[in-house]
Amino acid sequence: MRSHKENYAVKRSLGTKFRRDWDLYLLLLPGVLWFLAFAYKPMLGLVTAFYDYNTFKGLAGSTFVGLDNFREYVSGPDFLRTVKNTIMLALWQMAICFPIPIILAIAITEMKNKGISKLTQTATFLPHFISTVVVCSIVINFLSPSTGIFNIIRKQLGLDPIYFMVKPEFFRPIYTIMTLWQNAGFDAIVYIAALMGIDMQLYEAAIVDGAGKWKRILHITVPGILPTVVTMFILKVGKMVKVGYEAIILLYQPSTYPVADVISTYSYRIGMENGNFGMATAAGIFEAVIALVMVLSANVISRRVTENSLW
C-alpha cells in the first residue's frame, strides 16, 4: 500500500518482529478469537447437512447419512418452488432495486437547488434506519383493505377494495417496492460519492462544446460511474439472493407461500419449527451455491458487456 523507508527492518527474523510488536498481537486477540468462535465455528457446523441430526444427543450422537438430506430436499415438492421463488425475487430486485438508486443519485446531484437536493437525500436515507418489523407493519397498514390509501382511492372510484397481502400476484411487487423504499437512499450514497469524484472540467468542456444536460449525463456522468456500478452490481447479486428472509417471514402468509416461500424461509420453517436441522442446513447450502453461481455469472456478464469486472 504505502512505500516504506524501513524495508530493511522488514527483513528481520519473525521472532524479533514478534518480540517488538507482541502487544499489537495482543490487541488483535479478542477480535480474532471472536471471528473463530462466532464466524468460523458455524461454518464447521455446515456438516450438519450430512447427518440425521439428533436434537438431544447433538452431532456426536447423530447418524451420518451422506447426501440423503440433499436428496430429500431436491426430490421434495418444495424444492422447485423455493428455488424458483428465490431466483424470481432476486431478478425482480435486480431489475428495480438496483438501477433506481443510480437514477436517484444522478437526480440528487443534478438538482441545482442545494436545499432541495439535501432534503431529498435526507428523506430517502431515513427508511434505511428503521427496523424491518416497523417497515413491514407500515406496508401492511398502507395496503390494508380498510384503512390503506390504495383501497380508499379504489373505493372512491367505486371499485371493490383488494386485500393485497393475501393475493399471490401482488407479493413480488410489494416485496420489491418495499425493499426499494427502504434502501434506495442508502444505496444511492455510493453513487453520489462516485459522482462527486468526476472531474468538473469534463462538464465545463462539454458545456463549451454545446452539450446539453442530457448529453452531459449520457456521455460524462454515466461512463464516469460505470466502474462503481459494475462493482456494486456484482456485490449486490449475491446479497439479493440471501437477503430479506426477515422481511418475508413478516410479510408472507400461507396463501402467498406459492410465490413468497424462498429457500431461507423454507429452511427456517423446516429447521426451527419442525426440528429437521439436517435438511434445513442442506437447503441453506443450496442457497449459498445459488448465490455463488449468480455472483460468478454477473461477473462474467459484466466483463463481456462493459469490460469491467471484479475478478
Binding site: 461454518m43 464447521l44 457446523g45 455446515l46 450438519t48 434445513a280
Partner: peptide, 12 residues
C-alpha cells in the same frame, strides 16, 4: 461472504 447460516449458528 461466507457464513454458517441460520441453523449451524443456532446449534452453536
Amino acid at each position: 461472504y461466507f457464513s454458517g447460516g441460520m441453523i449451524p449458528t443456532y446449534l452453536l
